[in-house]
Amino acid sequence: MDYTITALPGDGIGPEVVAEAIKVLHAVGARYGHTFTIREALIGGIAIDQTGTALPEATVAACQDCDAVLLGAVGGPKWDDPNAKVRPEQGLLGIRKALGLYANLRPVTLHPLLLDASPLRPERLVDVDLLVVRELTGGIYFGEKRREQDAQGEWASDLCVYTQAEVERIVRLAAGLARQRHGHLTLVDKANVLETSRLWRSIATRIMREEFSDLQYDWMLVDACAMHLLRRPSDFDVIVTENMFGDILTDEASMLAGSMGMLPSASLGSGKMGLYEPIHGSAPDIAGQGKANPLATILSTALLLRYSLGLEQEARAVEAAVSAVLEAGIVTGDIARGEQRAHSTVEVGSAVASRI
């Protein structure tokens, strides 16, 4: 089969880790008889520098005319002015909206050899296998923003809005995933304070009772969830929550694995199209030094193969190759322990590709 993938390397370490993920994709193609045509496009800071916008129209067109999108990272100190009218993050928010991607899936699983890499005690990490489903297109990130000045001084506001349809579709998707996993869904909100959370709770409760009565589900306030993710992470199966809460909780959950360089993500919509990216940022402090961990991006390609292309066997092959590389101790410095040598980004990517 022939597939077209749009690659958005972006900024910082993005081009380095995306290059290794593409290397692994080509290895999958050679092994299983597929052809992956890779088309690169601009996003983020590099797009601002070259075109004046974080998301050029050509990039949107390339992403709309392909089978899946692979993203590296956006941003860096060069574009960090929060008052700038054009910022790299606008490219990320814009492409999600342009592709109709409303659900961000972030799986957190721990390889036994990496238990010591986490700041948590190893005994708390045994059997951790959870999935956070974050709503992507609503909430405070997309609401009306105002900043003005009156007689009392400056003031600002960010409007948080959710519609019934937005809540229904993300809850149904998360519940469906819980049904495929261990049958337990945790719905996270702040219903003791926020009206949007009360809307979430009423809609989700109805859906769970009427459509997913076979599942176990519970509600948890976001602050309690933040605590229990560290206190008893193995108790979670699937977590679903709104945009900002999901953004914060998934970064916290990444520390269970010891490094953001280990965790992939998938942003999905109603069809097969998806955008796949590591959850880490652009890490400009190590860009160009060969220190970046490519495994999160490589694991993101496994999600790409699974969700957008329907290639489950190939996805499992990538995940098995990553496990084999970890077993062999071929890792970058962020997860190297003891006497392990810190390997380069290219060495780790090549090691995975050779094990497909």
Rank of each mutant, 00 (worst) to 15 (best):
R121M: 12
V167T: 15
A19E: 14
M262T: 10
T332L: 04
S213M: 02
D237C: 10
E144C: 04
R39C: 11
G329M: 08
C63I: 05
G44D: 01
Y141F: 15
Q180T: 13
D189A: 09
M208N: 05
L187T: 11
V17L: 05
L230Q: 12
T53C: 12
G261E: 01
P119T: 08
D80L: 10
Q180R: 14
E242D: 12
I46Q: 14
Q340I: 10
L125W: 06
G143A: 09
L55T: 03
R87C: 11
K291D: 02
G290W: 04
Q90V: 09
P15I: 01
D65P: 05
R201E: 12
V132K: 03
D189E: 14
I5H: 06
G94E: 00
A320D: 14
A61D: 13
V86H: 07
H26V: 10
E57T: 15
L268T: 10
L131G: 09
G288K: 01
R169E: 00
R39Y: 06
A7E: 00
L99H: 03
R134N: 08
A292D: 03
R96L: 11
R87A: 12
M1Q: 10
D80P: 07
E252W: 09
A62I: 00
G29Q: 02
G261W: 01
G176I: 05
E195M: 12
A61R: 14
V60C: 08
L55K: 01
G258I: 04
A342N: 13
Q340E: 15
I170V: 15
D80F: 11
A62L: 09
R337N: 11
V188M: 03
A21D: 04
D247V: 00
D2E: 15
R172Y: 01
T241Q: 11
L136Q: 09
A226C: 12
D116L: 12
G75A: 07
